[in-house]
């Protein structure tokens, strides 16, 4: 095994893959809630990816990647035995793991992968863990078995009703509370609108919400300030102050706005070099 080598790769759905990567320094220091930077190719993008699992003895880490742009599509085309050019971390502040009492972990889409290590750590810390997992449809739902093992109670929702309850994770949280669950804290990871509405609901229900934010990042080490988010009216850097923040007062609309900044460029990169692209500096 050499550093940054893919030891194992499993496809979890058509566009989502799980990687086991040899990265011994990261494996022995990782904590729940932290992320790494992956990069492929000499001019490759630095892509932040949440750590899903780690094994200090084997020296391996696990990440789950959904192909949403050019770089992540390139990652998911890699095979066992291939190597990333950069695997750097662990980055970000770990989630505070303590006995909250009853902890709801809410994962949406590929966010389920990111909430999984938190569920595991909360369970080990003696919390009653209630998992609420949401996906668009059955074939996009990941980590169901592993999450079930870490959970004292377990609810699945799909947008189309192909698995579990038809509806949103917020519907599931509401009905859990109606059924008498006294939830103390909620850990939410998923698409920005899902985090926004789940945090709002939890706040209304008297549950302390925490959300892991996913702004665009560049270096991931605090250096560039690209990942600015607004929490409690203050500008914070998600890469060093987060990515998990207390979510009663996060400006999710601003987060959504800023994560969309390079949509056109992402499309351009995915489509390859467009014919009408005019190089400003005369390269071609």
């Amino acid at each position: 095994m050499t550093k940054n080598e893919i030891i194992n790769k499993t496809d979890l759905s058509a566009s989502i893959s799980e990687f086991e990567i040899y990265a011994p320094l990261i494996a022995r220091s990782a904590k729940a809630g932290q992320f790494i930077i992956l990069r492929l190719g000499e001019k490759g993008e630095r892509v932040p990816v949440t750590l899903v699992d780690w094994d200090a003895d084997k020296g391996t880490i696990a990440v789950i990647i959904q192909a949403v742009g050019k770089s992540t599509a390139d990652f998911n085309a890699m095979k066992k035995g291939d190597k990333f050019d950069t695997v750097a971390g662990p980055l970000g502040a770990p989630v505070e793991i303590k006995k909250y009492g009853v902890a709801a972990v809410v994962g949406g889409g590929v966010g389920i992968a990111e909430v999984y290590p938190i569920a595991r750590a909360l369970k080990q810390a003696g919390n009653r863990v209630i998992s609420v997992l949401g996906a668009r449809s059955k074939d996009l739902l990941i980590l169901e078995e592993r999450m079930a093992r870490m959970s004292d109670a377990f609810v699945i929702t799909t947008d189309d009703g192909s698995h579990g309850l038809k509806g949103m994770v917020t519907d599931a949280v509401k009905s859990l509370v109606r059924q008498g669950e006294k939830i103390d804290a909620g850990f939410i990871i998923g698409p920005v609108p899902m985090m926004k509405f789940t945090a709002k609901l939890m706040k209304e229900l008297g549950i302390k919400p925490y959300a892991s934010l996913n702004p665009i990042m560049l270096d991931g080490t605090g250096m560039c300030g690209c990942c600015r988010v607004i929490v409690d009216g203050k500008v914070r850097f998600a890469c060093v102050d987060g990515p998990m923040f207390e979510a009663s007062n996060i400006d999710f609309d601003n987060l959504m706005l800023r994560t969309g900044e390079y949509k056109q460029e992402e499309k351009l990169a995915l489509e390859g070099l467009s014919k009408d692209h005019k190089c400003k500096i005369g390269l071609h």
């Binding site: 001019k43 770089s71 990169a269 070099l273």
Partner: peptide, 13 residues
């Protein structure tokens, strides 16, 4: 660092 002025020849815009 990322040579964004060469995007999309480089990956970072």
């Amino acid at each position: 660092l990322m040579e964004a002025y060469n995007f999309p020849h480089t990956a970072t815009p």
